[in-house]
Design a binder for these strands. Sequence first.
DNA 1: CTAGGGTTAG
Length: 640
Amino acid sequence: MARIPSFFSNLCLRQNPKSLRAITPQIRNRNLSLDQFNGNSEELAQQPQKPDEIFAQNRIFPLNETSRLSEELMQNPQKPDEKFAQNQISTVSEIAKEVSKFILSRPRWEQTLLSDFPTVNFADPAVYKAVLKQQESNVLLSLRFYLWLRSLSGVSFDPDLCNLMFSRLVEAKAAYAAKSFLHDTKFEPEPRYLELYVRCLCENGLIDEAVGVFERLKMIGYCASLETWNLALSHCVRTSRVDVVWRLYGEMTECGVVTDVGTIGHLIQAFCLENNVAKGYELLQQVLEAGHVPDNIVFNKLISALCKNGNFGTVSAVLHNMIAKNCPPDIYTYQEIIYRLCKGRMSNEGLRIFDELKNRGYFPDRVMYTTMIHGLCRNKDLGNARKLWFEMIQNGIIPNEYTYNAFIDGLWRSGHFDEAEKLHKEMVDRGYGETTVSYNTMINGLCLNEKVEEAQALFEEMNEKDVVRDSITYNSLIKGFCCQGKITEALHFFIELRKQGFLPSTATLTTLIKKLCEAGQVKEAETLWLDMQNNGLEPAFHSLDPIISELSKQERFAEALEWLGCMINNGVRPKKTTLERLVERLSLADRSDDALFVLGYTLKMGIVLKQSSCHSLVDKLCRNNSHHTNTLLGEILERR
DNA sequence: CTAGGGTTAG
């Protein structure tokens, strides 16, 4: 992939002379707010308990039984310590080696260690530190030994020991254990270990905690290394904590840290995350001009953001940049571009890039084929999708769940139901059939093709096969029944959906309300609408049209006008047909005043009703040409 | 070890 596809070859680079420093003040001036962050973290690998529990010694290690000798020991006539007594081995490191060996071989050494080594003075800092140093590869053992020491009386804990234990925890990336160790001991770790702690916190997703430690370091006048700052920034970017990016960047420049291209790469990504793509692009230009080349992922994130905004021209420019800087676009780059092109109804452009890649000797992988097939299906280009499907298989790539579902969905949507059924069978045979998505794809496809009963059968099958139904399952089915005019069934599944705690999609609701009204069940429609309103569903107002329409038909004008007011007050324009029906029915029912009132609003909104709708009104008005009517008409005309 | 990708409603 040395060159770029023809589609992107028409733009040149924009030059920007500004230096990197130019952005610093803007970044400093940001208002920052730290949200609660709910990151997960890996704790001590071998120890699923929370650190607090680890420190609740007695629950894990039966230290209160220390004085009791184990049965094992009773049967063991020679104690390990006798060696020291007999041979006069007494250098601290030799003792530590022996103790460590013992600890490693006895799962419950805590109980007998003191009596096994009666001549060893564990309260001697030189001794316990030497033992701890022996266990550097095993954090859990270190921690156990440390806790055991704490259970002894007469052991004084010096900062060296705490630092040693703390560094052990931090190097093992046991963020939670390190945190509660700090909390527990209240000691001041050496700055270099605090710096390691920052890294450890970041790697465990505890960004906010890390910010706090940066503060602490700042207060003691210690400046973390560039690598640590960059690591923190990279984790902020990964977890979309843009606010923290700006805050940390501000602090690191305040500390006088000299940033590198990695730092700027994170800033570019941060700009992309807050959809400030222009700034991101500008910054990229500045780094490039300064002679630095960011990591591929920075280019890709920028390209992805540009694509999302439909700015394919700049995408082209960035691709030029990448090639010029000997940093060729990779599979992710092209996949993102193709995906976005298809999403913007430019699947033909996407396909051109796809073909171009193949012409350059590149073999697309399964994900790439899936993306392309999906994109083509969404653009109703089933011919090309099918072509790629077989080409992919020919190239030895076996479709998986994603590929099958994307293609089967496309087949259903274009009415190729035989082929859809056939491929679905194949997918089931390959073991991809029993997921929520595969069932949803089939249920939706069947509903789109007027096969609601079969869809319902699959719906039941999900229960038998223990496949979880989600809101998509229900929404698809409800819509299917609505389209078949089967309102009773649709309502049944709607109630089921609500019982499961799901919310209907707006499309489902609109359809359901419309169908209920058409069947004359306005009351149910109104209840439904209020239900969705109470549940915080947004756009509801458009679905009031059929309700107003049906109420007019039933000559329930007070209610119709009330709903109409509700719609208008919320800034939603009723449909022209709704207003026409209302005016017609009002006139027929001899309610000229109300008809005129509605007409007034209609004109105010710039909606012109069809002539026939005004006929009956004009007719009535002419028959009783009162002064009142004239006034009303006058008002209406003035409002216009 | 060196991040990151694809499927279902509307």
